[in-house]
């Protein structure tokens, strides 16, 4: 078994480290306080990227699920499953940081804000996706079931967003004045987004690799019996 630590993985990890450090510096030191948000703007530098990865990861889960059901190539299923595992971590981070941000800015932990609600449901759908696999009687069945769940979930999330939007039109939520952010905040946010995206890609490829390794080991073990 060859060591798949190709040179670019090392380079990517190095770049991710540097980007993370820059993003951290930008978020905690470089970025000034925002007029309305004050210091809570610094929370958004980790919250927004986590939420972004939560969405991207789920997009990839759904896309790969469609490809898996269509082409029946296990590699799509492996990619979908790995993306779901990494995505669940980032969705949890988005939820936790979102809730704490709400507490620090609005004064309560939870409100039925459309984005907060859709993220929570997205988190539950991720959970359902991963659980249906582990409870399936066979691996191949679990893969199919999970793909079905992912596709239904992908269609469902926008509907949830619309529904909670409508709900909040009836009961106006506390809103942040969404004026144009100063370019400086946008720049820090961009660096943060880049760092998180790269981190996601690295974690994703590592997880995929591990799953492939796992399968190889299982096959070897089978042939040994």
């Amino acid at each position: 078994m060859k060591n798949k630590n190709t040179p670019w993985t090392g380079v990517a990890i190095l770049i991710a480290f540097v980007l993370m450090a820059v993003a951290l510096y930008g978020a905690l030191v470089f970025s000034p306080e925002e007029k309305q948000l004050g210091n809570t703007i610094r929370i958004l530098y980790v919250h927004v990227p986590s939420a972004w990865i939560a969405l991207v990861a789920f997009g990839i889960v759904s896309l790969c699920s469609v490809l898996f059901l269509w082409k029946r190539n296990l590699k799509w299923d492996t990619l979908a499953r790995s993306s779901a595992e990494v995505g669940l971590v980032f969705t949890s981070l988005a939820l936790i940081s979102g809730s704490i941000w709400a507490r620090s800015f609005w004064g309560w932990w939870w409100t039925w804000d459309p984005r907060l609600t859709s993220t929570l449901i997205l988190w539950l759908i991720y959970l359902a996706y991963l659980m249906v696999r582990s409870y399936a009687t066979e691996e191949s069945r679990g893969a199919r079931y999970a793909a079905v769940v992912a596709i239904i979930g992908f269609v469902d999330v926008p509907i949830i967003y619309l529904t909670t939007r409508l709900w909040n039109l009836a009961h106006p939520p506390p809103t942040v004045a969404r004026g144009a952010l100063d370019p400086i905040f946008v720049w820090v946010l961009m660096v943060s987004l880049a760092a998180f995206t790269l981190l996601y890609i690295i974690l994703l490829t590592r997880t995929v690799e591990q799953k492939n390794l796992r399968r190889e080991i299982d096959q070897l073990r089978q042939s040994l019996k």
């Binding site: 809570t40 986590s50 949890s92 981070l93 940081s97 704490i100």
Partner: peptide, 15 residues
């Protein structure tokens, strides 16, 4: 607000 800020960065990096 700094307490919340601290909490979030701790949690995120720990996770």
């Amino acid at each position: 607000n700094l307490g919340y800020l601290f909490a979030i960065y701790t949690i995120v990096w720990a996770v």
